[in-house]
Write a protein that binds this DNA or RNA. Structure first.
Lengths: 370, 370
DNA sequence: GCTTGTATTTGAAACGCATCAAAGGGGCCG
DNA sequence: CGGCCCCTTTGATGCGTTTCAAATACAAGC
C-alpha cells in the first residue's frame, strides 16, 4: 500500500526527478526513448501522480466544479449534462457535488471547490444569492446558473419571458378563449413568464386573461385550492385554459378539477411550466414548457472559459438562454390522456435537447433504451 | 485576486501560523478569544484554505469520489443519493464524476480521484472490470457497485435472484398459468433472475414456464420480435404472463403484442425488471421490479468506511443487497393502463426507498413536488 | 580539435498547510 | 518563594509536484 512517488519512478528509471515530471506534463520535451523508458517504469510501478501536490505546485488544474441543489431534479441533470459535454470539449474535467437542498452544504462545497484550485466553479443556487458578497471576491471564476440578480457576477439563465410566450401560443393554437394564469408573480422568474404571456396575447384582444396569485410557495396544495375555486365557478365564467406557472401548481390544479368532476382536458386544458419530470410521471401527465437546461450548462462553461482566457474579465455578465421552439419542448401529454395516446415526454425532450446541442451523446444513450 | 494565505491571516491577527492552522482543524485547542479573533480575521480577509495544500500536508481528506457511467440513469442516481446520505452521515463529502458511457473517461476519473487523496472511491463500472488488475493495488479503498466478479476486491450489488423471485410471486398472485421469460440468459445478472423465478415456481408445478433467449443485446427490437412470435401462437399456446428480464425487452414485447391486436394486460400480462424510469415514462407504463440502488450506494460507503477504519481490510468482500418487498417496488402500472388508473411509479419507488433508508431527505423533496 | 548552437536533462526552490516537539505562561501546592 | 503541572502558542519540517535557470551532451561548421 506504500504510495509510489515521482522520486521512486525517477530512481527506478535512472533519470532525474524533473525528467519524470516532464514526461508527464511536457512529453514533447523528452527524447522518445527516455519517454518510453519512463512510461514503462510508471506503469510497472503503478505510479499515480498526487493531484494535490500537482495542484499545489502547478496552480489550477483543468477542472471545473458544479454544485447542484439536487441530483434527481431533471433540470439540474440537464445542466450537468450540458456542462459536462462543453467542459470535455475544452479538455476540462467536471466534478459534481450534490448540495441536497441544504444551503449550508451548498456553501460548504462551493468553498471546497474554490479551495481545490479548480479552474472555475458553477452553482445553481437554491435560494437568494445572499452569500454572494462573500463569494464575489473569490480568486476563482464563478458562474451562477438559472438565476439573475443585481449583484455583480456572471449569470446564465433561461429566458423566462420566452417561455411564457410559448405557453401563450400553445393556448392560442388550442383555441383558448379564457385563460387563467396561476402562480406567485412575486418571484422574478414567474413574473417574466407572465410578461411573456401578456405580450403574446397582445395581438389577441378577444382572449380573456386572468392572473391568480398562488400562495407564497407555489405548492401543489396552492394549485389545488385555486383549481377547486375554478371548478366551482359557473360554467360560463370558467376558463378553458389554465396555465400553472410551475408544473407543481399545474398538477395541483388538475387534481382539483378532476376531483370536482371537471374533465381535463375535455372541459379545461391545463399546461405547466418547468419541464419537471416528476410532473410527467405523475398520475396526470402534463403539458409543459421545458427550460433549456442543457444550454444553460453549456453556456455556463463557456462563460468560465471566457473568464479564464481573458485574464481581466468584465465584472458582470448576464446571459439569457433563449427558449426557442427548438430548445423548448411543449409536451402535449395531458391532452391525450383520455385517448390512450400518451406521448413520451422524456424522449421528445431528449430529442430536442440533442437537436440543439451539437453533440450526439444524448441521442446515443437514448438509443440504448429503445 | 491575490490569494490570501494562512500566513496573511496569521500576520494580520498577530498570531503564529500554527495557531491559525489549529483554529481550522482543532478549534478546541485554542483559547476562545484567540479563536474568535482568528475567525474574524479569516472572514475579514476572505481567507479560503487551499485544499491541495491541506491534503498534501495532512494526508487524505474526508471525502469520497463516485464515478458513474451516466447521470440520467435513474438507477445511478439512486446510488448517488444513497451514497451521498451515508457519506454525510459519517462527515464525508461526496464528489461525483460522470464517465458519460466512455470507459476511457471512467478510467481517467478513477485515477483522478485516487490521486486526489480521496479517502475512498466507488465506481459503477460500465463494462467488464478488466481494468481491475491495475486498480487493485491502488493505495485508496475502492468499492465496485452493481457488479460482482471474481477479481479480488469489494463489491456491492443487487440480489438479482431475489428480483426474479419477486417477479414470480407477482405472476403467481395474478393467477398466471403459463409464463414466458424473455432475455439473454448469458448475462450473469439475468441468469440469476431466471434462477430466482425458477426457485419461486418450484412449489407451483401447475404453472408452465418457458424461457426464450433474446438476441445478444436485449434490445427493444429483440423484445418486439419475441412478442410478435408470441402473438402469432394459437391462443391456447400463448402465455398469460410474460417476464422481460429487462425493462427494455418488456417494452418491446408489449409494443409487439399491442400491434398484433392482443390486449395488454387483458389477454397477456407483461412485467419487466430494472426499474428503468424511461420505461415508466414510455407510452406503455410497465410493471417492473426495481433493484435497490439507494441501498447499494449506502452499502458502498459503508464498505469504504470499513476499509478506512480497519486499516488491514480483507482482500475481498461481496455484499448482495436484498431485494425484499420493502426495498424493491413492484409497480403495477401496466395492468391499469386500460382503466385510467395509472399509478405513480416514481413516487411509489421513492416512498419505498425512503422507508428503508432512515433518512427523510428524499421524502422532503418529494413533498416539495406534490 | 575547437567553437557555437541545439536538444536534453538536472536539481534546487517554491507551492500552502498540518504536525509536533518545544517553549511560554499562569496557577497551585508545599 | 521555588517547583510542578497544565493550558496555549510557536515555528521549523516535510508532504509530492512543477518550474526554470543552469548544466550537460551532442552535432555541425570551421
Amino acid at each position: 500500500m506504500a504510495k509510489v512517488k515521482i522520486s521512486d519512478v525517477a530512481r527506478e528509471a535512472g533519470v532525474s526527478l524533473g525528467t519524470v515530471s516532464n514526461a508527464l506534463n511536457h512529453p514533447d520535451k523528452l527524447r522518445p526513448e527516455t519517454l518510453k523508458l519512463i512510461n514503462e517504469t510508471i506503469s510497472r510501478l503503478g505510479y499515480l501522480p498526487n493531484q494535490s501536490a500537482r495542484q499545489l505546485a502547478g496552480g489550477a488544474t483543468k477542472s471545473f466544479g458544479l454544485v447542484l441543489p439536487r441530483l434527481d431534479h431533471g433540470f439540474s441533470l440537464q445542466i450537468a449534462s450540458g456542462a459536462h459535454n462543453e467542459a470535455r470539449k475544452h479538455g476540462y474535467d467536471l466534478l459534481i457535488a450534490n448540495a441536497d437542498n441544504d444551503d449550508i452544504l451548498e456553501d460548504h462545497y462551493l468553498r471546497y471547490f474554490m479551495g481545490t484550485q479548480m479552474s472555475g466553479v458553477m452553482v445553481q443556487p437554491m435560494a437568494s444569492p445572499d452569500w454572494h458578497p462573500a463569494m464575489a471576491k473569490m480568486p476563482v471564476p464563478i458562474v451562477h446558473l438559472d438565476i439573475h440578480c443585481s449583484e455583480p457576477g456572471y449569470y446564465v439563465a433561461a429566458d423566462n419571458e420566452a417561455q411564457g410566450r410559448i405557453i401563450a401560443e400553445l393556448a392560442i393554437a388550442r383555441g383558448a378563449h379564457h385563460i387563467v394564469v396561476v402562480g406567485r408573480a412575486a418571484f422574478m422568474q414567474l413574473t417574466l413568464r407572465v410578461l411573456g404571456i401578456h405580450k403574446a396575447l397582445a395581438l389577441h384582444p378577444d382572449i380573456k386573461i386572468e392572473v391568480i396569485d398562488a400562495g407564497e410557495w407555489n405548492t401543489a396544495a396552492d394549485g389545488y385550492g385555486i383549481g377547486a375555486q375554478i371548478a366551482e365557478r359557473p360554467a360560463n365564467e370558467r376558463p378553458d385554459f389554465v396555465v400553472g406557472l410551475t408544473d407543481v401548481l399545474a398538477s395541483g390544479v388538475i387534481s382539483a378539477l378532476v376531483d370536482k368532476g371537471i374533465s381535463v382536458p375535455g372541459q379545461v386544458r391545463v399546461a405547466g411550466c418547468d419541464g419537471n419530470p416528476l410532473a410527467w410521471s405523475g398520475s396526470v401527465p402534463l403539458t409543459t414548457v421545458a427550460p433549456p437546461g442543457y444550454e444553460i450548462g453549456r453556456k455556463g462553461v463557456q462563460l468560465l472559459m471566457e473568464q479564464i482566457e481573458n485574464k481581466a474579465p468584465a465584472k458582470t455578465k448576464h446571459i439569457r438562454v433563449g427558449s426557442t421552439a427548438r430548445t423548448v419542448t411543449a409536451v402535449t401529454a395531458a391532452e391525450d390522456i383520455n385517448r390512450q395516446e400518451l406521448v413520451r415526454p422524456f424522449l421528445l425532450e431528449r430529442a430536442s435537447t440533442q437537436a440543439s446541442s451539437q453533440t450526439d451523446a444524448t441521442a446515443i444513450n437514448l438509443g440504448a433504451y429503445l
